[in-house]
Each structure stands twice: as structure tokens, then as C-alpha cells.
Amino acid sequence: MSHVYQPVMLLELLKSGGEASIEQIAKAMLLHDRSQIEYYEIRTKNMVGKVLTNNGIVDPVKLAGRIVGYRLKDISNMSAEDRSTLIGQCEGKIADYIEKRGDSIWKHRFNAKGYVPGSVRYEVLKQAKYRCELCGASAAEIALHVDHIIPRSKGGQDDLSNFQALCITCNTNKRDTDDADFRDVAKAYAHREKGCVFCEVSADRVIAENELCYAILDGFPVTPLHTLVIPKRHVSDYFDLFQPELNAMRRMLEEMRSDILNKDCSVSGFNVGINAGEAAGQTIFHCHVHLIPRRDGDMPNPRGGVRGVIPRKQSY
């Protein structure tokens, strides 16, 4: 058994005399899906509960200073007939609203271009070490979602570099401020500097790219197949990169490493280096990572590797 879904479906079929509709089975699965319950718990507390409390219709029920439920005001003064009338009015309002709005009511729960495949979800969660990439919560403690960094509605693609792992709380809170936050994020990722050689690199030099970075062969290679991995956003210092850019560049480095090894079986090692600041030798102030293939015998004594940035300190 890889998940609870199989026994839940079998349980529903057994309870239904051997046959059940897809909707019945889906509802049974929903009852066991803690991530969906948490999603609506957050909306109950942060949205619906606040509105009804502010309008004087309900009071929050608290335990140790924490809201654990809500109580309808004046419920003790209502007759059974009053409650029945109000229930009918609520059901009527729901039916009218659904008839008027249709599926658009739930568009925030739909994926614009279909679901995220399980294989993609696995890669994103594995890359994040099964922790929320914002708060660090573990998948063992809370449900993790695979989230688009740049939303589909703002042009974000279904590319591994555009996904991040977020816990249900961080993802829901981010969604609540989506319009405000991601306009600025999208602008930041789109920033280019006029006259920058890496912002204006010619398309024929690009050997690979994803949502947030690209790769080219170095114009003055230290060794054959010396490759640069470069963020698309104009940012001078490695330490100013956003976490999604770091994730995207790491994936690109792994992809380029595999590509180099497939092209040249004599490669037996790599130097991975970043010049951050003029004192460190940076001459193009658009961050870039050097992936330098190494081969046995390409220099008499390679011991010390990147320590060679200060020659007298390389050997030790």
C-alpha cells in the first residue's frame, strides 16, 4: 500500500454494497485528507470567522488563548422553528450563489492547466528535503504542497525551476496576498540591466535554460567545456540571489555536469566557483557560477583546487 487511497476506496465500495460513484469515492478520500481539512481550517479562522465575528453574528470559542471554534450568538433564544427557517434560508442562498457563479466559485482550488504530475511533485519535495522552503516545517509534521513560485496566472511555467515546496500554512498565507506579493516578485525576476553582457547575451550562445537561469560556454575557458550558469535576473552578488534562483541554478549545474560527462568521458572532476566582489576577482557584475571540468593530468599538481585563487596557498 503506497497511500490510504486504496483502502479508503475499497472501504467505500464495501459500505456501498460493492459499487460506488467516483464522486462518492472522492468524498470518502476527502474525509481522510488532512491537508484539505487544514486548508479550510485556515480559511475558517482567517476569513469567514473574522467576517461573521465582526458582524456580530458569532463569537470565537477560545482555549488557552487560541481560537478553537465559533458559537452562534443568541442560539439559546431560537425556537426549533426559527432554526429550521434559518437553515432553509442558508441552503437557498448557497443554491442561488452556485447557480449564479458556477465553477468560478472554486477557481482558486483548480489548476489552470491541469494537476502537477506525481513525478514532478516527487522531485520538488526531494529537492526541498521534504521541508517547507519558507518556514522549514517537516513533511512529517504538516502537509506540504508543490507551489508555483511565479503563478500560472502571471505567466509562470510548469518547469521544475518554478516550483517550490510550501507547507499548507505558508502556501495558504501566500495565496491570501498573492496579488500584492507576486506582482513585485514577477517584476524582480524580470529585471535586466542595459549594457550588461549577461542580461543581453545572444540567444545562440545559450545551451540550456529554465524559468530562472541559463547556461553558456565560457568565452575564455579554463578547460574545454568550461560552462557558466547565470541567473536571468540582473543581480551582481551570489549572496543576493533569491532561494528559488539558488534552486534553479543548482538544478542547472547538475544538468550541465551530466551533459559534460556524457560528452567527454575523460572528465574526472569539477571545480565549481563563484567570484563575489571585486576583491575576489569578479569582473562582470552579474552573478555567474563557473563549472570547470577537470581531467587527470591537466596540471602537474591539482592539490588544493580552488585554494589556487591565491597561488601560494594552493599547496599545503
Rank of each mutant, 00 (worst) to 15 (best):
Q36H: 15
H148N: 07
I274Y: 03
A95M: 06
L291P: 04
R66G: 03
E193S: 10
H191P: 08
M249R: 05
G297Q: 11
C90W: 02
H148S: 06
T283W: 04
E81A: 10
L291Y: 02
L11W: 09
D296H: 10
F198D: 06
Y5L: 15
T223G: 08
A80R: 01
M256H: 05
L160N: 04
N46Q: 15
A64V: 01
F198P: 14
R43F: 06
R294L: 08
Q157R: 08
Y70M: 00
A186Q: 05
H234K: 02
K174I: 05
Q6I: 10
L52W: 03
L160R: 06
Y122S: 13
N54K: 11
I274S: 05
V4W: 11
P293A: 05
E245M: 06
F163L: 11
S21T: 09
A208D: 13
L14D: 09
V201E: 15
P311F: 04
M9A: 13
H286W: 05
E123I: 12
V8R: 02
L261F: 00
G88K: 07
V58Q: 00
P221H: 00
V48K: 13
D181G: 15
E200Y: 07
A64Y: 07
K113Q: 08
G118R: 04
Q6L: 13
R183P: 05
D237F: 10
M47G: 14
M9V: 15
N55D: 07
P231W: 02
P293W: 00
Q24L: 07
D158R: 02
R131Y: 01
I105S: 06
T44Y: 15
S2T: 12
S266F: 07
M29W: 12
T169Y: 11
T53R: 11
L212R: 15
V58H: 03
Q314L: 07
C199E: 10
